[in-house]
Write a protein that binds this DNA or RNA. Structure first.
Lengths: 157, 157
DNA sequence: TTCAATAGTATTGTATACAATTTAATTGCC
DNA sequence: GGCAATTAAATTGTATACAATACTATTGAA
C-alpha cells in the first residue's frame, strides 16, 4: 500500500461534533433536572408542544428516531405524566401521542428555564445562526452519500 | 408567569448538533463496515494509533468517555483482535491498552478507507476548519457553565 | 372479495453513554 | 510502618440508538 496520510483525532470534524453533542446533552440534562427530563425526552416534548398530537411515526420523522427508540422513551414520558399514548380509532396501527394537562401547564416553565440556561452560554444569535447553517450543509452532504456508494468501496482494500 | 418566548426545535443549535452527530455515526458505521468497527471503537483506535499503549484513564481523557463506557468497548475490541488489555506492572490499578499486530497492520487500510469516504462528502478543508473552530468555541462555553450555575436556577420556577 | 404487499408499532438484541457504587492498589500523613 | 484518603477500573442500573424481526391493521390488485 502506498503512503497513506494519517487520520488524526483532533482534525476530525466528526469527533468535534460527537463531543459537542455529548456536552450539549449533559448541559440540558442538568438544565432540565428540575423537571426530571433527559435530553431526548425534552426534544420529544418540544416537537409535541409545537404540534400535538403526533403519531409515533410523525414524531420519529421530526426527531429522526425510530420506534425502537421512541416506544420505550414515550412509555417513560407516559409513566412520568407528560404524555398519553392512544391507539388511533381511524387507523388502529397508529398510536397518537397526546400531551397531558400537566405537560401543557409546564410548557412555559420549561421554555423559560431553557431560555435562562441558554443565556448563560453567552452565544450571539449570529454565531448560532452561522453554525447551524454550516451544520445543515454537513447534514445534507451526509444524507447524499448513500450506503451504496460506501458499500461499493468495500472491495477495494 | 410572564409571556415566555417559545423554544422551537428547528432553531435549536443542540438539535442540529445532535442530529449531525447521529448522521456522522451512521456514515462511519457504513464506511467501516468492512472492518466491523463501530464509530466509538474507531475513535478509540485512532487515539491508540497515534499513541499506544494508553491506560483506560488516558484513553478516556482523550475521548471524553469514562470506564463505564470504555471497559466493555475495549473488551469487544479485544475479542475482535484489535487490542490487548494488560495490567500495568508498575501500578496494578492501571490497565494498559496495547494494539495488536493486526491493528498495526490494518492501520493504513483504515486510514485510506476513511480518506476515500471523506472525499465523497465533498467538503473543503476550509469549510471543515471553520466549522471545527466554531464547535470548539461552543464546547468551551459549555464547559465553562458549571453544574452549580445550572443547579442554582432550580429554585426559580 | 380475497389475500399478498405494505405500513405502523412493538420487540429483541447489541452497543453506546454515564451516574453511582464497588473493589483493589497506591499515596500521604502521622 | 500503619492507615485514611485517593486513584484506577470494573460493575450496576438506567436510558438512549438502531438494525432486524415480529405482529397487526390497512390497502390494493386480480
Amino acid at each position: 500500500m502506498a503512503k497513506v496520510p494519517p487520520v488524526l483525532l483532533d482534525e476530525q470534524l466528526c469527533f468535534s461534533i460527537y463531543s459537542a453533542s455529548k456536552k450539549f446533552n449533559h448541559f440540558y440534562q442538568s438544565a432540565l433536572a428540575p423537571f426530571g427530563l433527559t435530553y431526548p425526552q425534552y426534544i420529544a416534548l418540544l416537537a409535541l408542544w409545537e404540534d400535538a398530537p403526533l403519531t409515533v411515526h410523525q414524531l420519529g420523522d421530526r426527531l429522526e428516531l425510530d420506534s425502537g427508540t421512541l416506544t420505550p422513551l414515550l412509555k417513560r414520558l407516559e409513566k412520568q405524566g407528560w404524555v398519553t399514548r392512544v391507539r388511533s380509532r381511524t387507523d388502529e396501527r397508529q398510536v397518537l401521542i397526546h400531551l397531558t394537562s400537566m405537560a401543557t401547564a409546564k410548557r412555559d416553565e420549561v421554555y423559560q428555564r431553557i431560555g435562562q440556561c441558554q443565556t448563560m452560554l453567552g452565544m450571539s444569535d449570529h454565531e448560532i445562526q452561522t453554525l447551524m447553517t454550516d451544520l445543515i450543509t454537513v447534514k445534507n452532504q451526509l444524507d447524499h452519500v448513500s450506503d451504496n456508494q460506501l458499500i461499493d468501496k468495500q472491495t477495494t482494500h
